[in-house]
Amino acid sequence: MVSSEKGRVTLPAALENLEDFKEFIVQNAEKAGLDPQKTMEMELAADEILTNIISYAYRGTSGDITVTCGTDEEGRFVVETADAGEPFNPLLADMPDVSASLEQREIGGLGLFLVKKMVDETRYERRNARNILRLYKKV
């Protein structure tokens, strides 16, 4: 769970809002004390998650994304995304076979693979008809 010292922003799930979401995350990461490398990793991971929500969650309808940033009780920086789109647990998605040659790899899945590599922990839950994904990074 994200602590009471947190920031929150809700915007429509649209590509034109992606930069605003990322700027919000970077500002909160810096405020939480993340070094530049970890801040960049969180920004890239969040970019992938947010792009997926924008592209697939609402399937032809409109909706919002809420991003909450802060530290948890263990002092980790947390980025939480929440949307009311179609249920989707990215942690259950098939991971690509990165040992296969480029010709043998299936299209897709590499972004979620990279998210898992860039953050220390990911958690997903479906609560109150909302997808909630948390990305954790040690400060």
Score class of each variant (00 low, 15 high):
F113M: 05
G108R: 00
K138V: 11
G75D: 02
V79Y: 01
V119L: 11
G108N: 03
N89Y: 02
L15G: 14
I25P: 03
N52P: 15
E41K: 15
A129F: 09
E73C: 08
A13D: 04
A14L: 15
N128G: 06
D97F: 00
R127P: 10
N17S: 13
D20F: 13
G111D: 13
A100W: 01
N89M: 01
K31V: 10
A45W: 08
A129W: 06
G108F: 01
K38Y: 06
P90I: 01
E19I: 14
E30S: 14
D47Q: 13
G33Y: 03
L135I: 07
M40F: 10
E19V: 13
L44K: 10
L133N: 01
K137Y: 03
T39F: 06
E41V: 09
S3V: 08
E80Q: 12
E80K: 06
Y58S: 04
D72P: 14
T68P: 00
R130K: 10
T68D: 00
L110D: 05
G111L: 12
Y56I: 06
P87Q: 03
P87H: 05
E30H: 15
T122K: 06
V67L: 00
K138W: 08
K116H: 06
S62W: 07
V2P: 14
A45H: 09
A14H: 15
K138N: 09
A82I: 13
V98W: 04
L92D: 04
L112H: 10
G108I: 00
K138M: 10
D64E: 11
M42G: 09
T81P: 02
T81Y: 02
G85S: 04
D35F: 15
E80V: 11
A129L: 07
R130Y: 07
I25D: 01
G85P: 08
S62Q: 08
S99V: 05
E125C: 12
N89I: 01
T39S: 11
P96A: 00
K22I: 15
R126Y: 14
G33V: 11
L102G: 05
